[in-house]
C-alpha cells in the first residue's frame, strides 16, 4: 500500500477498498460457479475458427458468431455469473455480515465489488471478442468488439450486482432478461432496443470497429446516454439497498 493511501483523510469519500477487493476476488475465483467461465469463450473461439475455414461471408460470420453468440450470449452470461457472485453469494451464505459489520461506507463496498465484477467480466468477454473478431474479420474489428464488450460489461455488471441485492433468484431473473427480453423480444419488437444492453454494445461495436461490415442498431448518442443512466441508476439504488441491509431473524 502506498504512503499516500495511509495518510488519506479517514473522512474523505472512498470509492475503492483494497481489502474488500482482495477477498471478493479470491472468493470469486475459488467458487465452483466460476468454472462456467472457461467453456464459454472457448466455444466462441472454436466457432469463429469454424466459420473462418468454412465458406461463410465475413459479414454473416460477424453477424451470427461474434454478435449473435459473443455479444448476445457470452458477454451477458459472463457478467451474470460474476455480477451475481461478488455480492449475492456472500449474502446467500451470510459471510457478507463480516464486511457489513465494519465502519465502511456502503458506497465503498458496492463500488469495490462492482468494479471487480465489471473488470473481470470485461476482461473475459473482451478478450474473447477480440480473438473472435480478429479471426472472423480483422484486428480492428476485433478491437472494436472488445472495447464495446468492455463497456457492456460495466453496464451489465451494475444491473446484475443490483439484482443480486434485491432479488432472491437473481440468476434466474438475469437469465430471463438475457434470453427473453434481449434475445427473443429484442429481435421481434423494435421498441425494446432502448432497454437492451445488447443493442448498445452492438452500436458501440459498429462505431469502434469502423468497419462497414458491422451495422449499429440504434443511435450512438442514445446508446451512450442509456448505458450511463442504467449504470449510475443501478449503482445508486444498490448503495441505498445495502444501507438498509436486513438480516433474517430466527428461523425456528
Amino acid at each position: 500500500m502506498s504512503a499516500r493511501t495511509t495518510v488519506a483523510p479517514a473522512s474523505g469519500p472512498r470509492l475503492f477498498n483494497p481489502t474488500i477487493a482482495g477477498i471478493t476476488l479470491r472468493g470469486l475465483l475459488g467458487r465452483r460457479r466460476s468454472l462456467l467461465l472457461i467453456p464459454l469463450p472457448l466455444v466462441l473461439i472454436a466457432l469463429s475458427l469454424l466459420v473462418r475455414t468454412g465458406n461463410v461471408p465475413t459479414k454473416d460470420a460477424l453477424q451470427v458468431v461474434v454478435t449473435g453468440l459473443g455479444v448476445a450470449v457470452i458477454l451477458p452470461l459472463t457478467a451474470l455469473i460474476i455480477g451475481t457472485s461478488v455480492l449475492g453469494s456472500e449474502i446467500d451464505d451470510g459471510t457478507i455480515v463480516h464486511i457489513l459489520a465494519k465502519p465502511v461506507a456502503r458506497r465503498e463496498i458496492v463500488l469495490t465489488k462492482y468494479l471487480i465484477a465489471a473488470v473481470v467480466s470485461g476482461l473475459v468477454a473482451g478478450v474473447s471478442l477480440l480473438i473472435a473478431g480478429t479471426i472472423v474479420a480483422s484486428v480492428s474489428v476485433g478491437v472494436g468488439f472488445a472495447v464495446a464488450g468492455l463497456i457492456g460489461a460495466f453496464v451489465y455488471s451494475a444491473l446484475f450486482v443490483l439484482a443480486s441485492l434485491v432479488i432472491r433468484r437473481a440468476v434466474l431473473v438475469g437469465l430471463a432478461y438475457i434470453l427473453l427480453w434481449e434475445g427473443l423480444l429484442g429481435n421481434v419488437l423494435d421498441g425494446t432496443k432502448v432497454l437492451s444492453v445488447q443493442k448498445y454494445v452492438s452500436e458501440f461495436a459498429a462505431t469502434f470497429s469502423g468497419s462497414s461490415l458491422v451495422h449499429g442498431p440504434m443511435s450512438l448518442i442514445l446508446a451512450i446516454v442509456m448505458s450511463a443512466v442504467l449504470t449510475v441508476g443501478a449503482l445508486l439504488i444498490a448503495v441505498d439497498r445495502l444501507r438498509s441491509f436486513s438480516m433474517a431473524g430466527e428461523t425456528s
Binding site: G30, G94, V97, H98, K102, V104, R106, M247
Partner: peptide, 29 residues
C-alpha cells in the same frame, strides 16, 4: 456504519470466508 467502530458482532450463523486463514480473516477485519 460508524457504530461499528464501537461495536463487535458475533452472529449465530457461523459462515466465514473459509478460503482465508484465521490470520488473514482477522487482519482483514
Amino acid at each position: 456504519p460508524d457504530v461499528y467502530r464501537y461495536l463487535g458482532l458475533v452472529t449465530e450463523r457461523e459462515n466465514v470466508h473459509g478460503f482465508l486463514t484465521a490470520r488473514e480473516f482477522i487482519r482483514a477485519s
